[in-house]
Every structure is written in C-alpha cells, then in structure tokens.
Amino acid sequence: MDEERCAGCCAGRPGDGVNRRTLLLGAGIAALAGSAAHADDGDDPNAVAPPKADDLLIQATGGDAGKPIGVDAFTTPNTLIQAWAKDPKTGVVRNLSRLNRILLVKIDPAGMDDATRARSVNGVVAYSDFCVHAGCWIETYHAQENVIICHCHSSLYDPRHGAEVTGGPAKGPLAALSLKLVDGHFVAAAPFVGHLGIIT
C-alpha cells in the first residue's frame, strides 16, 4: 500500500478502522501475489491447488507414503493418518502447499453431530492437518478423550463436532473434508469447507 492511500485511511484516530481496512487490502495483495508467485516459480498449479472432489487420498508420511488409504489403515484407536490428495486424472499429488495436507481419524459415528456424520464414511472423518493457530501439522489423536492435538502449541480440536476448538490458542475449527469410498479407498467427496490457514 502506498503512503497516499494509507494517509486517507489513517484520517482521524490511528486506530481500528485503519487496521481493518489495511488488513483487507493487504489480504487482497497477498492472495494475488500468491497466485503470481506460483506462476513465476513454474510450480504445477495442480500440485498447489487444494484438494478437489474425486481426489484419491494417499499416505503423506511413513513407510506407506504415497499409497492409497484403505479402511484397514486405522490399526489402533488413536491412529491419525496424514494424507495428501492425488488428482486421479493427472496423477499429480497436491503437496506443494502445506495448506493441503489432510488428517483422517476414525471415531464412533454415534458421537458425531449431523454435519460431521454427513461428511464421514465408515466412521472416518477428515480435516485439514494445518493447525489454524500457527500452521504446524497435527500428528496426534487421543480416541479416549475424543481430541485431536496439535502439540506445537497445544491446540485441541473435537473431531466429532467439526473439529471445533476445545482448548489451546487456536481461534477456529479446522477445515473439513467430505469423504467417500471408492474401491475400498478414501476419496475426497468435495473440497475443504471452512477456513484454511492461520487465524490471527
């Protein structure tokens, strides 16, 4: 933002209105700049784009990295699987933005709220793995307490209720991803719903 534009928005007290407008304009700048940066970098836009409907979910970490995730992947009650989405047409893995990583956990459908149940399949729910507090990847699920934990700064989310915040510094729920099963493997049924990224 140049100083002239800013000088206008600073008229009167140098307070909140100024900052709200600054933030809105700044957010626009950042979004545009982000798109431009991808093109300039030569990144495959498909690999930067967020998960889309019909994307196959594949393991992001560990010895099974790159393999599709089946219903038998939840070997313990506390299993939390980190996944990337793979474009079924091009085979491109959408892993060039950290925002795109997905977590899957298995919970008792009886405890889910209606919206969460509608997005789940076989008791498995999927959310963004990108903690909205500071962008750390989330690695822990404690089934007994029904809590997803970001140990980076101890944000807690409830997977039964749209990953709403139940503790710690996060200021909003994780974005949710609807699931379906295709040939026994988890597939995105729709894009993320909710806020992706840090909420300051």
Binding site: M1, E3, C10, P14, N19, T22, L23, L25, G26, A33
Partner: peptide
C-alpha cells in the same frame, strides 16, 4: 512477493 506490503502511516496527520 508474498511479503507484507500493508503499511499504515499517519504521515501528515
């Protein structure tokens, strides 16, 4: 490019 460009100054005021 992504770096912050939003500056709010009271210059003049």
């Amino acid at each position: 490019v992504l770096a912050g460009l939003a500056i709010c100054s009271r210059a003049g005021a």
